[in-house]
Amino acid sequence: MTYLSIMAAPVKTTDKDRYLAHARATWPAFQRHGAIAMSENWGVDIPDGKLTSFPLSVKLEADEAIVIGWIVWPDKATCDAAWEKLEQEPEMANMDMPFDGRRMIFGGFETILEH
Rank of each mutant, 00 (worst) to 15 (best):
R18K: 06
Y19E: 08
Y19S: 06
Y19W: 11
L20D: 06
L20Y: 06
L20G: 01
L20C: 07
A21P: 06
A21G: 06
A21Q: 08
A21L: 05
H22V: 01
H22P: 02
A23Q: 01
A23D: 05
A23H: 07
A25Y: 01
A25T: 02
T26I: 10
T26S: 03
T26N: 07
T26Y: 00
W27M: 00
P28R: 08
P28L: 00
P28W: 00
A29G: 08
A29C: 13
F30P: 06
Q31G: 00
R32E: 13
R32H: 14
R32N: 12
H33Y: 14
H33A: 14
G34H: 03
G34K: 05
I36C: 09
I36F: 08
I36G: 10
I36M: 13
A37Y: 06
A37E: 05
A37V: 04
A37W: 00
A37M: 01
M38Q: 13
M38W: 05
M38H: 05
E40M: 09
E40V: 09
N41S: 14
N41V: 07
N41Y: 06
N41F: 14
W42N: 03
W42Q: 01
G43A: 04
D45L: 05
D45Q: 07
D45A: 08
D45W: 04
I46W: 10
P47N: 04
P47I: 00
D48F: 10
D48N: 11
G49K: 12
L51H: 11
L51P: 03
L51Y: 11
L51W: 15
T52V: 12
T52Q: 13
S53D: 11
S53E: 15
S53N: 15
S53P: 05
F54K: 15
F54P: 14
L56V: 07
L56H: 07
L56F: 10
L56S: 02
S57D: 14
V58F: 09
V58K: 15
